[in-house]
Deep mutational scan, measured.
Amino acid sequence: MATGGRRGAAAAPLLVAVAALLLGAAGHLYPGEVCPGMDIRNNLTRLHELENCSVIEGHLQILLMFKTRPEDFRDLSFPKLIMITDYLLLFRVYGLESLKDLFPNLTVIRGSRLFFNYALVIFEMVHLKELGLYNLMNITRGSVRIEKNNELCYLATIDWSRILDSVEDNYIVLNKDDNEECGDICPGTAKGKTNCPATVINGQFVERCWTHSHCQKVCPTICKSHGCTAEGLCCHSECLGNCSQPDDPTKCVACRNFYLDGRCVETCPPPYYHFQDWRCVNFSFCQDLHHKCKNSRRQGCHQYVIHNNKCIPECPSGYTMNSSNLLCTPCLGPCPKVCHLLEGEKTIDSVTSAQELRGCTVINGSLIINIRGGNNLAAELEANLGLIEEISGYLKIRRSYALVSLSFFRKLRLIRGETLEIGNYSFYALDNQNLRQLWDWSKHNLTITQGKLFFHYNPKLCLSEIHKMEEVSGTKGRQERNDIALKTNGDQASCENELLKFSYIRTSFDKI
């Protein structure tokens, strides 16, 4: 039985969820670079991206490699990797027998973001014989899940209580170790020597080791999670996991709180800001991140802002960003909400898709409305799209047979046209069989910064309504002859009103 693990408890099935942008060198404390989270699957090609990484700022997932063999891993080693800020997950990587050479110096898994409450997941690794993470000293947050690894031993010899604050939620089941077939031998045991430290858990006094050649490092209890030197002297209180010299914040392997210019500090002093819960960055760093993602459509890219001495992905609820200094300031009234469309555009074809934009005031991208039916549609669209004030790209209304009016965009005031449909149009209306009105132009103002209007096959939309939009939106004169079809717009509506004058002759039985 794995020490510190839980057996036999019912657990939810383990679901495996399925960018080499360097964020800056980590400095003297770390020998390499800070790398983003990685999802490495199918083959070993991307694994080489770990070569210079000291910190993975995010998670590391290595999974679904069915053609790899043990010899493929023999020359692979990433000794610079010290810390993973989120979680480490391995799933069905064939041929991998140990992690001792792959990650010989991995010391800390912070667990800032977890995989279903777990910071370390080893699942269905069919050839893994031992973990071998002999320098792993601290899992700051989260638990361990090690399950269905039929060859995995050296679990009962690990004292997880020396690595985690609590072992109650560890789930370590259905491994070879369960069948008591392992016969784990710690260093020196074969020669009758006791080389590794022994600890007591559940009444068992057991030597602690990761492999037959690597003991588990056990520091004096007084050192807590700070770690200790090879001689057993406690590291500085700002260290986490390990250090090369005692009581020196510049000799830590990793930091308990924050890293700044080669030393570990309790908090980031001005003019620095907390970033990702582990390091200090200056304003320029946060500003660069903001600008890199301002026009990016890459998933996970955030326009970072500053709030409460932190550089964070977005302002919290009730705050909006001051564009001059990136500071989050309290909103006066309802907060603006910028919604970034991942692929640059979004099609609204149902109430469900409209709900995804609920509360958005600025759309960074283009909207395509293609709704053919739905219950209580006008009210639903207004509830979900009615706060949109600005669209950076274009607005396209296409084959939306259920629409009679666009009044559900009740606050839309600006279409920038930074991206144009077919390279020309910022407003595009095609084949809307029941569209009769755009907006009530006596109450609604709309500016279209650039781009043209396109109207074709809107049989109940009168040309007068379209011409009014040209005047109000500032697009009059931009359109070419064929942009607004004269014969297919309003051709099934009563669009022309003329005053009919009647004269009559009164007659009676005795007068003409």
Results as ranks from 00 to 15, higher is better:
206 V>F: 15
208 R>P: 14
251 K>N: 05
200 V>L: 04
40 I>V: 15
237 S>C: 09
258 F>A: 10
54 S>N: 06
218 V>H: 11
302 H>R: 06
120 L>T: 01
49 E>Q: 03
73 F>T: 03
62 I>P: 00
327 L>I: 12
200 V>F: 13
301 C>F: 08
179 N>S: 08
131 L>I: 14
257 N>S: 09
285 F>I: 04
183 G>A: 09
130 E>Q: 09
269 P>Y: 06
222 I>F: 10
98 S>Q: 02
209 C>T: 04
183 G>D: 14
207 E>M: 14
255 C>L: 00
219 C>Y: 07
69 R>M: 05
264 C>V: 00
56 I>S: 01
164 L>D: 05
34 V>K: 15
83 M>T: 06
210 W>P: 02
34 V>P: 07
116 F>P: 02
182 C>P: 12
265 V>L: 09
37 G>T: 07
102 L>R: 00
336 P>E: 09
259 Y>C: 14
122 I>W: 00
65 M>Y: 03
322 N>T: 04
287 Q>L: 04
156 A>W: 04
331 C>G: 14
300 G>R: 10
71 E>S: 09
327 L>R: 12
140 T>N: 10
332 L>V: 02
201 I>R: 07
293 C>G: 01
184 D>S: 12
148 K>M: 06
196 C>K: 09
131 L>R: 01
206 V>L: 12
270 P>S: 11
97 E>L: 06
94 Y>G: 10
105 N>I: 02
99 L>C: 04
172 I>G: 11
303 Q>G: 10
298 R>K: 04
164 L>K: 12
324 S>M: 11
70 P>K: 10
96 L>K: 01
333 G>K: 02
190 A>T: 10
203 G>F: 06
57 E>W: 03
220 P>L: 06
247 D>N: 05
212 H>A: 13
162 R>C: 14
158 I>F: 06
156 A>H: 08
127 H>D: 08
117 N>T: 03
105 N>L: 02
189 T>H: 14
147 E>H: 07
119 A>T: 04
149 N>L: 01
90 L>A: 05
247 D>M: 03
153 C>W: 01
286 C>Q: 03
169 D>L: 07
220 P>A: 01
176 K>L: 03
185 I>C: 05
104 P>N: 00
298 R>S: 12
252 C>I: 00
302 H>C: 05
256 R>L: 07
274 H>V: 11
88 L>I: 15
86 D>L: 00
225 S>D: 07
116 F>M: 11
228 C>D: 07
218 V>N: 07
335 C>V: 05
258 F>C: 09
38 M>Q: 14
237 S>A: 12
34 V>Y: 07
330 P>F: 12
236 H>P: 02
204 Q>R: 07
328 C>K: 03
110 R>P: 00
214 H>T: 11
335 C>I: 05
108 V>M: 09
124 E>H: 10
134 Y>F: 13
229 T>A: 07
326 L>C: 05
137 M>Y: 12
185 I>M: 08
169 D>M: 09
152 L>S: 04
235 C>K: 00
172 I>F: 04
306 I>N: 03
157 T>N: 09
310 K>R: 10
91 F>V: 05
274 H>G: 15
243 C>W: 00
177 D>S: 03
86 D>I: 02
148 K>L: 13
308 N>M: 09
143 S>D: 09
139 I>Y: 01
136 L>W: 00
303 Q>P: 13
219 C>N: 08
65 M>L: 09
155 L>Y: 11
329 T>E: 01
70 P>W: 14
317 S>G: 07
164 L>P: 01
295 N>K: 05
316 P>Y: 04
270 P>A: 13
250 T>E: 11
311 C>Y: 03
278 W>C: 03
230 A>Q: 15
265 V>G: 03
267 T>S: 05
37 G>F: 07
44 L>G: 04
214 H>L: 06
150 N>M: 07
132 G>P: 01
85 T>N: 03
224 K>T: 10
224 K>W: 03
44 L>A: 12
75 D>P: 06
104 P>V: 01
255 C>N: 01
189 T>C: 12
255 C>M: 01
84 I>S: 00
130 E>A: 09
198 A>W: 10
242 N>T: 09
237 S>E: 14
30 Y>A: 15
160 W>D: 01
184 D>E: 10
31 P>L: 11
74 R>L: 02
147 E>D: 03
270 P>F: 07
159 D>T: 11
68 T>W: 13
255 C>I: 01
213 S>E: 12
106 L>W: 01
305 V>R: 09
155 L>P: 05
303 Q>A: 07
334 P>M: 15
174 L>P: 13
63 L>H: 12
141 R>E: 11
